[in-house]
Design a protein around this nucleic acid. Sequence first.
DNA 1: GATATCTAATTGCATATGCAAATAGCAAGT
DNA 2: ACTTGCTATTTGCATATGCAATTAGATATC
Lengths: 249, 249
Amino acid sequence: MTETRLDAVKLDGAGPVYDQIRRAIRDLVVSGEWPPGTSVPPEHALMEQLGASRMTVHRALVQLAREGLIVRRRRSGTVVATPPASHAMLDILSIPEEVRQLGQAYAYEVLARTDGRPSPEVAELFGLKRSDKVAHLIVLHRADGKPHVLEERVIHAAGVNGLADEDFAETPPGDWLLQHSLWSQAEHAISAIGAGEEQAALLEIAEGEPCLLVERRTWNQSQPVTAVRLLYPGFRHRFVGRFGPYGAA
Amino acid sequence: MTETRLDAVKLDGAGPVYDQIRRAIRDLVVSGEWPPGTSVPPEHALMEQLGASRMTVHRALVQLAREGLIVRRRRSGTVVATPPASHAMLDILSIPEEVRQLGQAYAYEVLARTDGRPSPEVAELFGLKRSDKVAHLIVLHRADGKPHVLEERVIHAAGVNGLADEDFAETPPGDWLLQHSLWSQAEHAISAIGAGEEQAALLEIAEGEPCLLVERRTWNQSQPVTAVRLLYPGFRHRFVGRFGPYGAA
DNA sequence: GATATCTAATTGCATATGCAAATAGCAAGT
DNA sequence: ACTTGCTATTTGCATATGCAATTAGATATC
């Protein structure tokens, strides 16, 4: 339960007051300045600090709660929520979790790791300078001992603390990053591709076998954090999502 | 602009009043009883009808507006929104639109149509009785003259009006359905698969070439509406989505 | 020490009121 | 016809007020 700097909440005079309050607090949350667990000042305090009525403050907080950024409980007060680990549509943010939900035993091996400058392709793909430092990893995830997905990942060292000291012996890089970095934007791309020679060997499938390729890039405040390519044997995987016409269910 | 039955809005006494109002109106919208374009009674009318204060009615309507079910404008009033044609993550609800957004010329051919009973596999997949009537269609969509995606579709006749009289000469079945049916639930599945012999011939690719298979099933109030399998040549397509940790961007 | 009870902090909900902003529709004037 | 301006309707926003529900923490009791 971190200390909350009350005067960190500042209005910008643009638009409705309730929305100024909402944005001010949202910014503190998504910037990481108020990390998950931080307690948000009670309505009365904000009301005095900002010179708004309680109902106006209330409206802002209720909306933030509906958006899932904060959690409110009577008497205990309001705290910053821990962001949902997975995303509605097609999520695979945590591969161990994904495998275990299938009721299979999870294991992984780090097949290769190189720290250094990004290759030209990687730099291009990611909008990095050649002088930036990155870690490049290849990881094979297994379910019940059988190859499940092949992960190739680039991590931007400047965006993540403690990267050099981590050997990913205990935790695979994807999960480790979830705990050691923030992200504000992500992009997914899904396509189908035939397995290359090396990839096929690692996944123990035939060369050219159709695979699902999931590419994900994440940024924090427009600074790159990580990019990953996940190669799933196609016949064994499908991604499913459910929703209604007005949004995810 | 349909007539609005004011007394259709009824409270159920469960939970907060503003939420009862919200749910009551939401139900009228999603059930199709108030189709898109219907004008919602003004706050004053609802206020009197329901015996709630204007602010309470307001709160319900504001929330529905934020959820995208209704559109509100000062003086003009409130109308039921036309549901968004495409969904944030991976949408391809309208293939013509998708192709045109790529700046390519769109065309399609209905390769086959059979009306009758569902095959056992289709019935299984869809939870239909063998006695239900369905239409089975195979459609090839082209972009700039080249095969773009192969569509295989089953439509449940009982769920859709006017199906028998439609020959899909003007509008491909996906788009036609969007206009002639409602859906309340959809399920997407994405996988990778090698093109079969016939499929490869139609798409003008090599047999076994990796393809993205998008399967979508839609229901209205738990009654099946349609199921479709879209086969995209993998090297030519990728589906992209962007979002933040707290939801779609 | 354990347990029951009270108190006060905090959020949740609803109302009443007033004013601001946008604008559809009408009226008047040219 | 076309423009101009007025007016009434409708939504948007903020405030002040009061009470209800929940419950952490203090207090009293056994």
